[in-house]
């Protein structure tokens, strides 16, 4: 089965870059969402195999989106990886909820993104 990834990022070009990287390199299907609320809807509807979630977004930020994903039985089981330009103590203080799989630092390396995701989730790159 081809993997399906949901990318939630408010920046359209990041969405597109992530889509290209994951599709071309790994052959995965990629669904994109431009905001936290949009992401919640798509996560529930599309049931992706994993979610890449931007941390800093206006309105509903990454951690809040993650909490909402965890709160719903429809999306709780989906592994979430943060995409973040900061992996710093002060930001992580807010992530009181455990359960995100890992964080990938932005800017990510385009050719390595799919590989990083599969290593984190223990998938075989096809």
């Amino acid at each position: 089965m081809t993997k399906r990834i949901l990318v939630i990022d408010n920046e359209p070009y990041i969405q597109e870059v992530a889509q290209i990287c994951l599709r071309t390199v790994a052959g995965w299907q990629v669904v994109t969402a431009g905001s936290g609320p949009d992401g919640l809807l798509k996560a529930a509807a599309e049931q992706p195999d994993a979610i890449l979630l931007d941390v800093m977004m206006p309105d509903m930020d990454g951690p809040t989106t993650f909490e909402n994903l965890q709160a719903s039985t429809a999306t709780r089981h989906i592994p979430v990886i943060f995409l973040t330009a900061k992996v710093q103590a002060c930001d992580l203080r807010r992530y009181t909820n455990l359960g995100i799989k890992a964080a990938i630092a932005k800017p990510f390396s385009p050719l390595d993104l799919a590989n990083q995701v599969s290593v984190i989730l223990g998938w075989n790159l096809k």
């Binding site: 103590a89 992530y95 799989k101 890992a102 964080a103 630092a105 390595d112 990083q116 290593v119 984190i120």
Partner: peptide, 19 residues
Amino acid sequence: LRRGSSASAMPVLAWGSLQ
């Protein structure tokens, strides 16, 4: 440490191919 004030919220820290 994971849930605390420190930066340990991450089960796995990744940096390129380094984990």
